[in-house]
Design a protein around this nucleic acid. Sequence first.
DNA 1: TTATCTGCAAAGTATTTGCATAATG
DNA 2: CATTATGCAAATACTTTGCAGATAA
Lengths: 130, 130
Amino acid sequence: MQRMTRQRLAVLGLLDRQSDFRSAQQIHDDLEERGARVALATVYRTLQSLVESGQVDTLRHDGEISYRKCRRAVHHHHLVCRNCGLTVEFEGDVVERWAHDLAAANGFVQVEHTLEFFGLCARCAAEDAS
Amino acid sequence: MQRMTRQRLAVLGLLDRQSDFRSAQQIHDDLEERGARVALATVYRTLQSLVESGQVDTLRHDGEISYRKCRRAVHHHHLVCRNCGLTVEFEGDVVERWAHDLAAANGFVQVEHTLEFFGLCARCAAEDAS
DNA sequence: TTATCTGCAAAGTATTTGCATAATG
DNA sequence: CATTATGCAAATACTTTGCAGATAA
């Protein structure tokens, strides 16, 4: 049901090599640099399908969506450097429990949550100071 | 430095009466309904200034920003009904501590976070079932 | 072969901005 | 009266979509 096209392979390949969150436009540019011509619309469509199938994580920030291949299958969160994009994944059963308790206390059901941390990584903080 | 114009008063008045998060466009429509003609651009500008001065909370969801007058001054989070917008505010020092620990463990500084819960409130869940 | 994917350009959203005019303090 | 805010329309930025032609299976 999902055809392996040159374009899809190119996007998947790039996602494998990149470790930080990148916007669709950045991914498009990166592909161009490597000589892989893929239309921006195709990049968007491909990323969208990868997100739906759970292979890619998204992050909404400043009105734009960033993409990154998941490192772990279970639900998790991110600590992202707002300067260079360096990303650390981590799990947090605390929030899951919290969500459950909150739901119970307020009569809510089907509670989901979004939790992300943004900061400056050590390297960027050092550069900032100098 | 901030002039009290008819438009600003109208926006403030509406924010006082509304208890849920509303997008700029919804707020604009609500104002029109009440006969207060305020240009959409002005609604955006006013909300923006209210956010900057800390009088209004924002929530990013599905690529759009929603606004709501803060009920409490300290940093807090929300449990929002994704159907009717009903909102419960709550504090969570757990996350603050968590953010601090994460930062220390990974060498990050100036760590901020976003945490929101979305679910179905009791009433909407009941309607859903019927 | 044929259903799915791609490229292109056009259309959509949500938000911002330039500028002349209006209104506040 | 000097500034700051407003309205309008045009500009932005990101993302989605329609459609004809290309391509994987």
